[in-house]
């Protein structure tokens, strides 16, 4: 599977924020997008996911087969917001995304309990999401990446709010995902603790 971006340009409110982005990521490759605030990191991720139209250029996925015809269908998008409901419990939130996102081909993700164990939140599955701390909320959102297998992870500031131990654990999860043939595009200021990554510097 290859994630390819050619001559990609993005704009916000009619103003160009970046242009001419070239990217080609094979199975097991990670790309870290860095750059100052407002340089278009989040916009780039949203354009790749298909949430924003590209001003120019194309993004496509090669070799996805029938299960993953488009980038959006192959991707987990982890944005600034955690996409969880404060009124539902952590387990209900994850269970919903597992049931909603999975279909026959992709039902190979972890169970809700296992995913919570993987982010070391095993004992708080019964609590309403609204009761959690910022870091615990982020870890729950990270557990969402595990309950349904998707080859491409698009991560926007994934470690925001995490403590050192959680950052290391998340680096481990990303490492596993890459070893399993996944692709990661992550926008961040902080080093993610991954080796052998491509760096894409946005200059703004």
């Amino acid at each position: 599977m290859r994630l390819i971006a050619e001559g990609l340009a993005g704009e916000r409110g009619g103003e160009s924020v970046f242009s001419g982005i070239e990217l080609a990521l094979e199975d097991g490759a990670a790309c870290v997008v860095t750059g100052p605030n407002g340089s278009g990191k989040s916009t780039l991720l949203r354009v790749i996911a298909g949430l924003l139209p590209a001003a120019a250029g194309t993004v496509r996925l090669e070799g996805g087969g029938e299960a993953f015809p488009t980038v959006a269908s192959a991707s987990h998008y982890l944005g600034h917001q955690n996409a969880m409901k404060p009124a539902l419990t952590v387990a209900e939130n994850l269970g919903f995304w597992r049931d909603f996102s999975a279909d026959a081909e992709t039902k190979s993700g972890l169970g809700v309990d296992q995913a919570l164990e993987a982010v070391e939140l095993g004992r708080i599955g019964h609590l309403p999401f609204g009761y959690l701390s910022t870091g615990q909320r982020r870890r729950t959102a990270i557990a969402r990446l595990l309950v349904c297998r998707r080859p491409v992870w698009l991560l926007d500031e994934p470690t925001a709010g995490l403590d050192k131990a959680s950052e290391r654990r998340f680096a481990g999860l990303m490492g596993e995902h890459l070893r399993g043939g996944g692709i990661i595009v992550a926008a961040t200021h902080l080093p993610l603790g991954l080796e052998g990554t491509v760096e894409l510097r946005m200059v703004g």
């Binding site: 996911a49 949430l51 959006a72 269908s73 998008y77 944005g79 996409a83």
Partner: peptide
Amino acid sequence: REDGSLDLLVLEADRH
């Protein structure tokens, strides 16, 4: 939209 779920619902367009 406020909690980001809407983005994910829109992204599932190929499945649902």
